[in-house]
């Protein structure tokens, strides 16, 4: 017995050494594996130009009535995110029911486990690749962006929705059932009103994320502000990069604020 205690003490006392070695090895492997190219000679100069551009943005690009200016494209970006999130929220509902585990079910359940796996797969499938695939189908432009956001967001919204379903209070459902209501009555009178605010709140949260991704989807040709941004970076038009960055920062901040305020009221 005493030896056993000693052994445990030994393990407890020295296991950190093992962990330290593992972590250290991981870092050595990573640092050796990466080929640090070293800074290009022009790096300092480029950084300086970027900074200069950021502080001297090209204001004339803000609005020129062509429809290709910052103002129009920022709104196009928001439209992509909004529409994509909306479509995704609707598509996510059946996925949520697929993946949600009923209260007294086992941890492994064929329906819910398979649903959860599908959601992981969708979440992992890079949004950028989806955008490129949809460009093949509908041509370059913001519609492809909408489709990419719609499908990719299912991965996260489906997961959040199904967790909300798993954790919801089933009391009001029981009450409707005991009053002689059918399954459909339970769903409409108890489940929906209980779960909707949570679904809405998650959808808004996902919208905040979609705004960020819609602003870069243009880099592969799926509409929004990303296209002129990448073009400006590649042509080293730093004052235009500056104004676009400002535009994105203001847009994201404003949306986060508005959406955050609504979400606080919902829950």
């Amino acid at each position: 017995m005493t030896e056993n205690v000693k052994k445990q003490n030994f393990w407890a006392r020295y296991s950190w050494i093992m962990w330290a070695v593992i972590v250290l090895a991981f870092y050595v492997w990573s640092i050796n594996g990466l080929q640090f190219s070293g800074l290009q000679e022009s790096a300092a100069e480029v950084s300086k130009s970027i900074m200069h551009g950021l502080f001297h943005p090209e204001w004339s690009y803000f609005y020129d009535g062509s429809g290709e200016d910052l103002f129009s494209l920022i709104f196009q970006t928001l439209a992509i995110a909004f529409l994509g999130t909306f479509v995704s929220a609707i598509l996510s509902i059946p996925f949520a029911f697929w993946a949600a585990r009923a209260p007294r079910e086992n941890k492994f359940h064929l329906r819910s486990t398979s649903g959860k796996f599908i959601l992981v797969f969708i979440r992992t499938f890079p949004e950028l690749v989806l955008a490129i695939m949809f460009i093949k189908a509908v041509g370059p432009g913001s519609f492809a962006g909408v489709l990419a956001v719609s499908i990719h967001s299912i991965g996260m919204l489906g997961k959040l929705f199904s967790e909300a379903l798993e954790n919801m209070d089933r009391g009001s459902e029981e009450a409707i059932q005991s009053a002689g209501g059918s399954k459909a009555d339970m769903w409409v009178l108890a489940t929906m009103p209980t779960i909707m605010p949570e679904f809405l709140s998650y959808t808004l949260y996902r919208f905040e994320i979609a705004v960020r991704s819609a602003s870069i989807l243009g880099m592969v040709g799926a509409g929004g502000i990303g296209t002129p941004l990448l073009f400006a970076i590649q042509t080293r038009n730093w004052s235009r990069v500056g104004i676009i960055l400002l535009g994105i920062i203001v847009m994201v901040t404003a949306i986060d604020f508005i959406s955050g305020t609504i979400r606080k009221k919902l829950v």
């Binding site: 009001s172 009450a175 059932q177 005991s178 009053a179 002689g180 209501g181 209980t194």
Partner: peptide, 20 residues
């Protein structure tokens, strides 16, 4: 459902829809 209709029930945690 007709049986349940004729039997009322109240619960420890009220089981109302809080947001309605």
């Amino acid at each position: 459902r007709n049986l349940r209709r004729s039997v009322g029930m109240i619960f420890q945690d009220f089981n109302l829809v809080n947001r309605s």
